[in-house]
Amino acid sequence: MNISSRFRAKENLQLSDSDAKARPLGNGSDSKPADKLTTLALAEKISDYQNILYAQKQHKLLIILQGMDTSGKDGTVRGVFGQINPLGARTVAFKAPSSVELEHDYLWRVHKEVPGKGEITIFNRSHYEDVLITRVHDWIDQEECQRRFTQICDFERMLSETGTTILKFFLHISKDEQKQRLQERLADPDKHWKFDPQDLIEREHWARYQQAYASTISATDIDHAPWYIIPSDSKTQRNLAIAHIVTEKLESMKLAFPPGNSDYKDICVN
């Protein structure tokens, strides 16, 4: 059994049944230094694969990171994808839509950011916000939500059928862990830039967000666009799990540099 299968979302998902504190790839707290070294080695391997992917220009890889505030989306980008050559990789952070974006359908701003051939693109939040925060705050009703689930599945199927590999990660943290991380940001002036008072308002809706995430993941977990539930109270374990899954997927692509050009064999550089 490969590592990725351990984290696949289950049918009829209930996040309360998933332990955000779990350390499925570790051997207790003593394994943290070794886990960090393993993650670094995997990050370097991902970078090597990305060089081949960029040269080959056949495959496209879309990584989607979703999770509650402080769940570690930025930390995942640094820890797992920080070794990648920026030439063939992009990170896109989706904030509240602009007035121009609101004049279009909700997928308009997303579609133009998907990876091109040879690219790895990482979404820090994504189109899934349009079936999460919108439901928690009752900006859309259930009928519209179900319509969007169908549209998102169709959108991701189209991406898959046109050569994009999609991996979706839910960074699962506990409410207690979020409290601690928010408090740490408030206690350190150097981290105040990371704190948004809106985070406290959204925290008041914790239970509704957990329900919204569970139903969203269940409705949009498809083999060609799978969801992985990543226990994320441990930052080290979070990065280790995601690095393993991304590496497995890149290995399965059978990447290879393009064939050499026989016309070049007799060229002599003076």
Rank of each mutant, 00 (worst) to 15 (best):
S4G: 04
F7P: 01
R8M: 08
K10S: 11
Q14C: 09
L15S: 10
D19N: 15
K21A: 14
A22C: 07
A22L: 12
L25A: 00
G26L: 01
N27S: 10
G28S: 08
G28P: 08
S31E: 06
A34Q: 13
A34V: 01
A41P: 01
E44L: 07
E44H: 11
D48R: 09
N51F: 10
N51S: 13
Q58I: 06
Q58T: 12
L62C: 08
L62V: 06
I64V: 15
Q66L: 12
G67L: 10
T70K: 07
K73Q: 06
K73G: 02
D74I: 02
T76S: 06
F81H: 03
F81N: 02
G82S: 06
I84P: 00
N85E: 07
N85Y: 06
G88P: 05
F94R: 07
P97E: 12
P97T: 06
S99F: 14
E101A: 13
E103D: 14
E103R: 15
L107S: 07
R109G: 04
G116R: 15
G118Q: 09
I122C: 03
F123G: 04
S126I: 04
S126W: 13
S126C: 07
L132G: 09
L132E: 07
I133F: 13
I133H: 09
I133D: 03
I133E: 10
R135M: 08
R135I: 01
H137V: 00
D141H: 09
D141L: 09
C145N: 11
R147D: 10
T150V: 05
Q151E: 12
C153W: 02
D154P: 02
M158Q: 10
L159T: 01
L159P: 02
S160Q: 04
E161S: 11
G163P: 10
T164F: 09
T164E: 06
T165Y: 13
K168M: 04
K168H: 07
H172E: 06
L186H: 11
D188W: 14
F195Q: 07
Q198E: 12
Q198G: 13
D199P: 03
L200N: 12
I201F: 14
E202D: 15
E204F: 06
H205N: 12
H205M: 13
A207Y: 14
A207S: 14
A207P: 00
R208Q: 14
Y209G: 05
Q211G: 00
A214F: 09
T216D: 05
T216A: 15
S218K: 10
S218T: 15
T220P: 03
D223R: 08
D223Q: 11
Y228D: 00
Y228G: 01
I229G: 04
I230F: 08
D233G: 01
S234E: 08
K235E: 03
T236C: 01
T236W: 02
T236S: 03
Q237W: 12
R238Q: 14
L240Y: 01
I242Q: 05
A243P: 03
I245W: 00
T247W: 02
T247E: 00
L250P: 04
M253E: 07
A256G: 08
A256C: 09
F257L: 15
Y264A: 12
K265T: 00
V269M: 14
V269E: 15
N270A: 10
